[in-house]
Design a binder for these strands. Sequence first.
DNA 1: GCATCTATGCAAAATGCGAG
DNA 2: CTCGCATTTTGCATAGATGC
Length: 558
Amino acid sequence: MSGVESEGNGADETCVIVAESSVDMEEELQARGSQSEGFEPSPSSRAAQKNVRGRETDGALRARATPETPEAPSALAEGIEFLPPRKKAAKTGSRAQPVGPGRENLGPCEKLKPTSSLTESESDLDGKGNLIAHRVLIANKREGGLGQIDIGAKKDALRAKLISKFLDPNRHYPWEDALASQLSNFGLRDVRNLCILHPEKVVGELKPFYREIVEAWGKLLPHLMPICRNKEDVFRLPFLKNPCFLHKGKTITSSHLMEAGLLWIRDIMNDDFSVKLDFIFGVLKNKNINFRKCSIRSITEKIKNTVTLFWERIMQTKDISMQNDDLNFLLCQNNNPVPVQEIKTKAWYKLLIAEIKRTPTTEKIWAQIFPGFNTKSIWTSGGGLFTPPTLQHLDFKIKHRRIFTGIVLHQINKGKYERKCKKCNEQDEDLEHLFLDCSLVRAFYSTIRRTIQSACNFHCGSDTEWTLLFLFGLKKNSAHQHTHIINTILSYTRFSVWTVRNYALYENRTLSLLPFFKTLFLNHLKNCFFAIPDTFNQLLNTGHTLFTVHQNNITLNL
DNA sequence: GCATCTATGCAAAATGCGAG
DNA sequence: CTCGCATTTTGCATAGATGC
């Protein structure tokens, strides 16, 4: 599928996710709209606006470490960003965002850059650091993706829909004859070309549009079964490269039989499924084909076995009434065979996606670090109450381990970054150190842990469970009544650690974690108080003692 | 960490060759 | 002409190296 991979998805392959990992389009639009009206759902950004605007995360590096590079305007809240193919991205500034307000302090010879991506620093990482694979992101959120659309699969699904319309005996379309004539012009030179998987050489000779149709159909064919009402229908099927007839999981090929033009089951079999060996030998001899009887015998024996099995399967399946003997297929969904013309494009798409999507690599790594931990559960953990996109973004990056730690940065630019943690100067900074083991972080965590325990009446057993909690949050469907609040606290906890670390690394500034966290969290509560008063009031009355509201003034009990 | 390219391994099909 | 064994070819999947 060179077309799809190299062209169709070229941009998708390098796409990156910036924020809003769990909001749908509507919410995203709302968030953007409210931002433009001055409402900022992220209190962090507010705090940052005063003196360190936009430095919460990536911005820090961008603003200081590379003064010639302007920070992209509200880059982190921009949503999903598609970067052009890497080489072009590095060279051209054509996709750069216009310079927005608040950019006065930047150097004179600034160069416009694309908006933020998962990369931390443009000067060091632009175009590098592959982010999260497109194949992962097309999975749904419960599987670690973002439900991103795969355009290639979407296209194939539409092509498949075309075929299923073509096969519908009850409806006729003006373009059917054109498609039928194309199908009789290659391979088997018959509409039953739709029964087999064609090699690339054969498909390559087709006109581009029909080539796409045949290729898309080929991807779905292994899921399908041709409708056969009787033995005669079976005998009209081709047996080479037909996914119905598998031997040891593979389709059967035979250049001898192909060359001899013996393509259909009825060409080589009698009504009792015995092989017409002598006839085959005769045909091969007549056509001057060099062959071995034993080779032919073994290949036909395989065909006989698989055809017999297929026939037995046909006998077991339900009788599908057909009006005529046109070619048609069934798709088995949940053990329920459905004629293809009833299949929706979305169902085709899902089938195609299943082949492409990959489970996130990060799952394996978390499983190594936490033996016995169900790593799949991280995708349904976290979230919280009106969590700002910036925080969701960070949480998503942590889950995927796409954090540019000291070790990674050092690898990329040895002169500029050290492996050591800038905060404690004790150990090398890997992800576990950054978010869990750093001595400063640990002290902070124990405070948060005590707060959650006492104010939210939440208790979980072991230290490991707490560690997992700090990394991923509580499961969304957790029975605990304060799940939302706890997840919000934890999200801000991670975000505070990350931001304070960035101040230390990029600006040599030391901030205290706890006060920083308090400011951010309080601002968030205030925003929620004004933005979603009803939900907020509901939360107030659930019995926690985390904060109180008195005359529109929120007090944090921390 | 991921994408790309290349090398490698594997199994099945095709072929080579000698013996009968 | 057939058979058995060995070898080559082919198609496919996977592993490893490399670059970003």
